[in-house]
Design a binder for these strands. Structure first.
Length: 202
DNA sequence: CACCAGATCCTCT
DNA sequence: GAGGATCTGGTGG
């Protein structure tokens, strides 16, 4: 598809104005699109995690608003990009404003711009190009500059697009979130069943 | 200013 | 599954 065709399918803020756990499931199968100098990178979202506005000790908003997490308190559909060690991680604000929840994009299946992704990642291994939140940000050249970026505007250079039929509920697996030390028991990680492109495949 | 805890990744075993 | 590399923001003195 062309850039314009992806833009015609851009997901609006309305989609993200819902409970993060629901958004995290519903965004599976959608496309993450990045435009760099007129060239597009596209990945199909295959793994997400939800972080809740309230009662979630693992969420970055659990101890209030700081300089780091301020983007969480903006409107739904904006990016919350933060760093973990030397990597960037991409969240999309869900609910938003007074309910600072988000959906972490943990893995995508590379669809378009794969050679550029390989260059950005310094690897040829397709299965490991975007199989983790830090990896996909590296592949898509998503930096801190995108923190607070509106992913729902018509001229966005980073956005989500709806190009496929929804993933059936029985093809979605819920599990515990990766890499956290608090609220380990919550089933807020969602993957597309049997996708080889997820992080920590079983 | 120092310390430390991370929503990670990669390379082994 | 474990350990090390390596960076930044939040917290407390």
């Amino acid at each position: 598809m062309t850039i314009e065709e992806y833009r015609d399918r851009i997901i609006s803020s309305k989609f993200y104005e819902n409970y993060p756990a629901d958004v995290a499931r519903q965004v599976l199968g959608k496309y993450l699109v990045r435009v760099i100098d007129g060239v597009i990178l596209v990945g199909k979202i295959v793994e997400t995690e939800a972080y809740l506005p309230f009662g979630d000790d693992a969420a970055h908003n659990a101890r209030g608003k700081t300089r780091r997490n301020r983007s969480l308190f903006q409107s739904a559909g904006r990016a919350y990009v933060h760093t973990m060690r030397q990597y960037c991680l991409l969240d999309i604000v869900a609910e938003g404003t007074d309910d600072p929840g988000s959906v972490l994009i943990r893995a995508v299946e590379p669809i378009e711009g794969i050679e550029i992704m390989k260059t950005n990642r310094c690897t040829d291994k397709l299965l490991k190009l975007c199989s983790g939140p830090g990896k996909l940000c590296q592949a898509f050249a998503i930096t801190r500059d995108f923190d607070g970026f509106d992913m729902t505007s018509r001229d966005a250079i980073l956005f989500t697009a709806d190009c496929n039929a929804p993933i059936p509920m029985d093809q979605i697996v819920a599990s515990t979130r990766i890499g956290i030390s608090k609220a380990k028991d919550k089933l807020l990680r969602f993957t597309i069943k049997d996708s080889p492109f997820i992080s920590h495949p079983s």
